[in-house]
Design a protein around this nucleic acid. Sequence first.
DNA 1: TCTGGGGTCCTAGGACCC
DNA 2: TCTGGGGTCCTAGGACCC
Length: 395
Amino acid sequence: MKTPFVLHIDIDAFFAAVEVMLNPYLKGKPVIVGGMPDERGVVSTASYEARKYGVHSGMALRTAGQKCPHGIFVRGRYHVYSRISEKFIACLTRFSPRVEAVSIDEAYIDLSGNRYLHSSVYALAEKIKKTVEREIGLSVSVGLGFSRLGAKLATEAAKPGGLFMVADEKTFISNLTLEKIPGIGNHTLLILQAMGIKRVKELERAYPAIWKRTIAPHFYSQSRYPAAREAKTKSFSRETTFPEDITDRDMIVSHLAYLVDRLSVYLIDHDYFAGRVEVKARFSDFSTYTKRMPLEYPTYSYNNIWSKALFLLDQLIKKKKLPLRLVGVKVEDIASQRDLLPFISIRSEQLSRGVSDIKRRFGFSSIFTARELLLEKIYPVERDAIVLKTASLTK
DNA sequence: TCTGGGGTCCTAGGACCC
DNA sequence: TCTGGGGTCCTAGGACCC
């Protein structure tokens, strides 16, 4: 008899549960996190009491206000949530080194290494659940399966606050309706429904080729294991939806400047360089356009990002003669200093001026080019920092 | 009824090169 | 006068997730 070895764990109604923990007066009440019911925005999380009124994540706040007029609306305190999330992940790591955090309130654990140490995986899962709940003070749901997909779907069946183990994963999944399958969203669902398919097993029977490409890989491929990888973030973005749509270009421009400033500070604080910038505009009719372009060289400089962003914005707002609802900016092709070492010489013009300035002020040996560093076979972090930061000052 | 903000991944189509 | 086939790189946009 085979034993499930992938565990999925999920904090119940996370944001709302944190608010209740911090303010016990909210206990048992319909709590809705995301903003005020007269604001533009959507529900982040609704407590189970609020869900009884049909309120759910992603719903417009105004709609939630109508469905649940006596609901208690709170703005999110995201820094608090992320601190609790860190505690949550740290706690899980004590049970297995192979923990894959997939979002702020959700993780997979590969127990295949531990399972012989314990009489039963189920008992181990119970222990993990109890420990986490005690340490973070919130209720969690836990699923056990033979793949990430199976474990996640088991958690869904366990909610709220339960523990569910699938014994026959393939049958379990085959019987589910398609909207339960992560990765199948509204669009795909509509197409499949139009084809007369509601459950996974119907897909398998009627369109085995599609089933083989979409569902089957979860059972057999590498994707069934929790990934030990440290996921590297590939892009950073900041965006704002205005309280009211705006037409004034100066106003739009100053919002964009603020967003670019925030991004630039973030990049500098984390020692990241961006290779490309994208600007996003959403008009009053909700139509959304984006434009992107490479930066001349990897940079975190406000000015470099700003000049491209402004150019892209002007192209975007020409698209429609409508007020703007949202403006956003994103940087991609993120590199760290280390990644950039081999490419330094490409920016020789920019480099040389800055380098010479520094040499003049601090003496010839105060700074080296990357090429010199490579020749010496030395990669001391401090020196990398001097070379690269100088490069970005020269524009 | 009105639809956030932060991400990931995939695809279609054009430009360009050999 | 009619023009291949492939590969690669790039951008825009869509689908999806929490």
